[in-house]
Simulated scan of single mutants.
Amino acid sequence: MSKKSRTQSRAEKAAEIKAAQARRERKRRLLAIGGVVGAMVLIVGGAVLISALNREDVEPADVGASEYGFVYGPDEADHTVVIYEDFLCPHCGTLEAAAGEDLAEQADQGAVRIDYRPVAFLGEESVRTLNAFKVVLEESGPDVAKEYHDALFAEQASAPLADDQLVELAVESGAEEGAVRGGIEDMAQEDWVTEATEAAAADGLQGTPTVQLDGETFDDGSSWQEIGANLVAAVQE
């Protein structure tokens, strides 16, 4: 074997080792996240669901104070709302469908300031999706990120989305493909996703969605659709 061939072989072997290490580290992180919420996973009809149990145990959130939150609405709003959510959680999708558009409208009118606290409770696909959201937030700014947030929930029935679909949805939301594709495909914000999920669990989060209105747990209703409608009514008062 020539010197050039031996050098190339060593380089390829080193790349394989590095890739294997990266895969092991990613698996370790996913297992760590799964361990945080494993006791709360419910198997219903073959689907994995997480519902917000013991919501009263979550520490009151200081709106706008967390590096893991995404705030929408003015500082001087009459009300504050905190929503812990997972983009793949069907209950979160129900809440978003019932209240998301109206809450955003109330925020635009100055009635409420919303602090979204996304987490990844539902395994690898939740991690991938939240990573994509954070990439868009970092690279394209809050206005595009809000559009992407809404679009991810609108497409929840099609989840999990492949990388190309996540990128396409980001572009449709206003992001530049060149700015976000690399971070989405390379999981550039995976550490942030892990930290955000662990921080929420440390605050007492038991499941998603969990809602706080003006610093207190809000669960007025017998379903997430009803809770969403009542939440909108409450911020209009």
Results as ranks from 00 to 15, higher is better:
Gly207Asn: 02
Asn54Glu: 15
Ala61Ile: 14
Phe121Cys: 01
Gly174Ser: 05
Glu67Pro: 08
Ala22Gln: 12
Leu53Asp: 10
Asp214Met: 08
Ala19Ile: 10
Ala229Arg: 12
Val144Trp: 01
Gly123Ile: 05
Gly34His: 04
Ala19Lys: 14
Asp75Glu: 15
Ile227Phe: 07
Leu137Glu: 04
Ile83Cys: 07
Ile114Thr: 04
Ala97His: 02
Lys134Ile: 06
Leu169Pro: 07
Gln109Leu: 11
Glu139Thr: 05
Ala145Ile: 06
Glu190Cys: 06
Pro160His: 10
Tyr116Met: 00
Thr217Tyr: 10
Glu138Gln: 06
His149Leu: 05
Asp219Thr: 10
Pro60Ala: 13
Gln106Ser: 15
Gln156His: 13
Leu231His: 05
Ala201Asn: 10
Tyr84Gln: 00
Ala14Gln: 13
Gly174Asp: 02
Val48Pro: 09
Ala22Leu: 13
Arg28Leu: 13
Glu226Gln: 15
Leu42Ala: 15
Ser140Val: 04
Ala201Phe: 08
Val41Gly: 11
Glu76Asp: 15
Leu166Ile: 02
Leu205Arg: 11
Ile114His: 04
Ile33Arg: 01
Ala200Lys: 01
Phe70Gln: 06
Arg28Asp: 12
His79Gln: 06
Lys3Ile: 14
Val81Gly: 01
Glu138Asp: 09
Gln225Arg: 10
Val235Pro: 03
Lys146Cys: 00
Gly207Pro: 03
Thr94Ser: 05
Arg117Gln: 01
Val81Leu: 03
Glu76Lys: 14
Asp219Glu: 09
Leu166Arg: 00
Val37Met: 04
Gly182His: 14
Ala65Leu: 09
Arg28Pro: 07
Ala111Val: 01
Arg23Asn: 11
Ala22Gly: 07
Ala65Thr: 10
Asp191Cys: 10
Glu177Ile: 13
Val232Tyr: 08
Gly228Leu: 07
Leu152Asn: 06
Arg24Asn: 10
Ala200Pro: 07
Glu168Ala: 15
Ser173Met: 05
Glu124Phe: 05
Asp203Leu: 06
Lys27Glu: 09
Leu103Met: 07
Gly34Tyr: 02
Gly100Asp: 02
Gly204Cys: 09
Leu122His: 03
Glu56Val: 08
Asp62Ala: 15
Ala145Arg: 04
Ser223Arg: 12
Gly207Cys: 13
Ile33Asn: 00
Asp62Thr: 15
Pro60Asp: 12
Gly73Val: 06
Gly215Arg: 09
Gln236Trp: 11
Gly123Thr: 11
Lys3Gly: 12
Gly46Ile: 07
Gly207Ile: 09
Leu169Lys: 01
Leu231Phe: 11
Leu205Val: 14
His79Ile: 07
Asp62Met: 15
Ala32Thr: 10
Glu176Pro: 08
Phe133Asn: 01
Asn54Ile: 13
Asp86Arg: 04
Thr94Asn: 02
Gln206Arg: 11
Cys89Met: 13
Glu195Cys: 00
Val144Asp: 05
Glu237Arg: 14
Glu172Lys: 15
Ala98Tyr: 02
